[in-house]
Design a protein around this nucleic acid. Structure first.
Lengths: 350, 350
DNA sequence: TTGAAAGCGCTAACAA
DNA sequence: TTGTTAGCGCTTTCAA
């Protein structure tokens, strides 16, 4: 037994007395502030090393920053969020900032609790990924602290936005299916719990783009949308509902890969095969979509770039920027084996 | 524009003056401490409501708790972690505690940074999921604060452990394959970056159990293990390596579902079909394993129970328990369509 | 039952 | 360049 019980943490005062300097001097060194001689800096740094001193975020928070970025994720089950987080982590690497995550959950109430929890903990900035809250609430948060919102399309003057061009991405999928010769193309969208203006939500935008493109190709009578969830279960339920239509659709466009996986399950269960009997496409281009036995046609939105950009914007705000910035990534269609012309019809181009 | 710029946060002093009581009184009320009359309590609660007061964690941290539980996850790409987190969140619901997550990464150095970051932020307790650190380091953490370690098998007197019986789980899979008539059963394990004693790591235990059962059935000459990673890419690489053996194995047991998905990809790519040409099994029983077009035989370890237990143990420690507790869940084999007798051989039972 | 006051570890204004 | 000192918002003795 090396140490008996909980040991007292080394404080700035310990470092000061060990280095025989004032507390201020130590504070200046750890903050890289002006007005310290190289000699002083050395002595202090040595003392810090020797004692293994680390500043306590709580004490710093009382006067200044916590060097903490709070990230609110609805949940961690969507692998796309991992890409975002990777980009964010990479961008924060080398800075003094640390990202902490918190689950926002699937209700606005839980999400508010999560955001409040981050504010209570005095994070320096907050990144909200696909939040449910209304714009007014987001602006409330944005007024209280540096804020970046990822995945919502409204424009605000008080927080920054990072989005994918969901309208363009959705259009890519639908046009691809139409060019393969499909007409009975159906869509699985997300049943949200949001109080946002519908037009600002990515799943609504994807669904609207689907409708728009169908219209533009004279296929308005074929439009059919299942409202489920962007997850396996939702995709399964949605596909079951849509497969029950008569005549049966020849292509399913799920608004997210996770839902597309569920749709694939429903299709198999119905004794149909992909893509011979029915084509399936998703959105997000998750790693799983690339597995040969799934090989799902999907839309790639660069999550890592979204994450690193969000981090950069957040740090800029922490450093003082107050003007709002909006960043948009361009989606890219990744065609795989889950989409093909409908039963033997020749491939045509529109 | 409702508020001009960053508004000052409501403090305990604001509440006190608004309620015309002392700061101490307010403090007592928010802590549910003894010695407050119901009348006082009412007045204070009303004032808190009216002002929308929320205690600042940083200030509380200077004297007492932060009501924060820190969770270190290697990454968030493994859906099994989501199950753990769900259990943890549910258990914390209703308490004043909030869980925050931080990515530990894949190197010991990054993991240490993450743990240090949590300590700097004065979390009340820490849950480490599948850490890479050596036992000595874990005990160091455990001596400094309430600690629960999930997924590591060593026994410690200073922190609690939550584990799956990986030996039993692995045995279930291998015996299942043997009973189907397989002999050339190979295994994909994880190439770790840990400085832990090998025997304490779950992937080593799974691999050792595989070897043990093979031995027990006289199949020691068929043992073959690929060291890759517990993710899609690793499973793909590992399976490619193992499929190159001659004669070709008839069954692949991947130590994790994620790796099994990659293995399925490699098998398909090799022009083989599952389970006709080769059986594949995984571990973790993730949601994806249940999709009909994957239908992966896997081992279920109840992640939600592990997560909620971890939270319970952590809160007990925060409340003062110092004796160490170890909790183990029993794995359960879930047989699906990815495993079957090898090419037409009759099903036998061992 | 109530409240005054000290102090947690740090930052920053100010003085030397 | 260096150090003194006044808080930041809470909790917790201790006295009234």
């Amino acid at each position: 037994m090396v140490t008996p019980n909980r040991r007292r943490r080394v404080t700035i005062a310990d470092v000061a007395s060990h280095a025989q300097v004032s507390i201020t001097a130590v504070s200046k060194v750890i903050r890289n502030a002006y007005g310290v001689s190289p000699a002083m800096k050395d002595r202090v740094k040595t003392a810090i090393e020797e004692l293994g001193y680390r500043p306590q975020a709580a004490a710093r928070a009382m006067r200044g920053r916590t060097f903490t970025i709070g990230v609110v994720l609805p949940h961690i089950r969507n692998p796309f969020f991992a890409d975002i987080l990777d980009g964010l982590t990479e961008q924060l690497e080398g800075t003094d900032y640390q990202a902490i995550m918190i689950q926002g959950g699937v209700t606005r109430q839980a999400e508010k609790r999560a955001v409040d929890a981050l504010m209570d903990r005095q994070v320096d900035g907050i990144l909200m990924v696909g939040p449910l809250a209304a714009k007014t609430r987001l602006e409330e948060v944005g007024r209280d602290m540096p804020t970046v919102v990822l995945g919502r399309h409204e424009r605000s003057a008080v927080y920054d936005s990072v989005v994918d061009d969901d309208d363009a991405g959705s259009e890519l999928v639908v046009k691809h299916l139409i060019s393969l010769g499909h007409r009975r193309i159906v869509h699985i969208t997300h049943q949200d719990n949001s109080s946002a203006r519908p037009a600002d939500l990515l799943h609504i935008i994807r669904a609207e783009a689907y409708k728009r493109v169908m219209h533009e190709h004279g296929l308005q009578d074929e439009i059919a949308i299942a409202k489920a969830y962007y997850n396996e279960e939702g995709g399964y339920q949605g596909a079951r509902e849509l497969l029950g239509r008569s005549p049966r659709p020849t292509a399913i466009f799920a608004g997210a890969d996770q839902a597309a996986f569920g749709a694939l399950a429903a299709v198999h269960e119905a004794g149909l095969s992909v893509p011979a009997d029915i084509s399936v496409a998703g959105y997000d281009n998750t790693k799983l979509a690339d597995l040969p036995n799934i090989s799902l046609t999907s839309v790639d939105q660069d999550g890592a770039v979204m994450g690193s950009t969000a981090a950069r914007l957040l740090l800029e705000r922490v450093e003082g920027r107050t003007s709002a910035v909006r960043f948009s990534v361009n989606p890219r269609l990744v065609i795989r084996h889950s989409t093909a012309p409908p039963d033997g019809s020749p491939q045509t181009t529109t």
